[in-house]
């Protein structure tokens, strides 16, 4: 038996919004620790991982691990039927269930909606990502700042370079109409409202596709802050953490390389 109840549908709605433009379908792996998924986009440029830890749920029961193959567009359609303050309960049989049940209940518990989502058999490839990579540079910034930087720059062109030196990050773009750049310095005071922190072991300069960096802005509502981790020649890791260590959405983006 798998049973998981979220107090408010907002949590899962936001998480799905953050991933549904990158992947069409994925296996939601349920274990005693929580709900997680890993999936790549078709051209293998971006890997998305998501975890909702068991403590994110008001009720969480997973007697034995199961994998639910879900079409992201279908689950999003069903979750549109939940008001943001409605609770969401997901129930599935752990013995080869062919559908998962979604129950939405309003705050006063006098309106209860039931939906069944058909599950799919998805043959997915799991990639092994190093857990604690020793990154050369890590930058943390308000997620609203992330949105502004990459929605602005990706309008100019799709080749975005991130260069991080001591205390400064430079984001630049080259496009058909021209180019642009933006420098962001580490904020001085620790009690600054919207801090930018930059940790550099070694300066790093890498180029990434702007289309993806802009798509990741869909995760901004999840978290007040975002962390970008870079190592020369390796995929960029971007993390949006849910409050109270309830989980996260992470993206791994393959760099553009010199030919």
């Amino acid at each position: 038996m798998f049973e998981a109840k979220l107090t408010e549908s907002t949590t899962i709605k936001r998480v799905l919004d953050a991933i549904k433009d990158l992947i069409q379908q994925a296996n939601f792996d349920c274990s005693a620790d929580g709900l997680s998924l890993q999936a790549m986009d078709t051209p293998h440029v971006c890997l998305t991982t998501m975890t909702l830890r068991s403590q994110a749920f008001e009720v969480y029961r997973c007697d034995r691990p199961l994998s639910m193959g879900i079409n992201l567009s279908s689950i999003s359609k069903i979750l549109k039927c939940a008001a943001s303050k409605d609770s969401v309960k997901i129930v599935a049989d752990d013995e080869g269930a062919d559908c998962a049940e979604f129950i939405f209940e309003n705050e006063s518990a006098d309106r209860i909606a039931h939906f069944e989502l058909k599950l799919m058999d998805i043959d997915s490839e799991h990639l092994s990502i190093p857990e604690d990579s020793d990154y050369q540079a890590i930058i943390s910034m308000p997620s609203a700042e992330y949105r502004r930087i990459f929605s602005d720059l990706s309008i100019i062109g799709d080749t975005i370079t991130i260069e991080i030196n001591k205390n400064t990050a430079c984001f630049s773009v080259e496009g058909d109409i021209g180019n642009g750049s933006l420098n962001l310095a580490q904020t001085d005071s620790a009690d600054e409202k919207n801090p930018v922190t930059i940790n550099v072991k070694e300066p790093v300069k890498m180029t990434f596709p702007g289309k993806y960096l802009n798509t990741f802005t869909k995760a901004v509502p999840i978290s007040e802050f975002v962390t970008l981790c870079l190592t020369d020649g390796n995929p960029l890791a971007i993390e949006f953490s849910l409050p109270d260590e309830a989980g996260f959405v992470r993206y791994f983006l393959a760099p553009k390389i010199d030919q």
């Binding site: 790549m40 051209p43 890997l47 990639l127 092994s128």
Partner: peptide, 14 residues
């Protein structure tokens, strides 16, 4: 000038 790499160049299958 730049070529888009893909993740399979960096991460192996589990």
């Amino acid at each position: 000038r730049d070529k888009q790499s893909n993740l399979k160049m960096f991460y192996g299958s589990e």
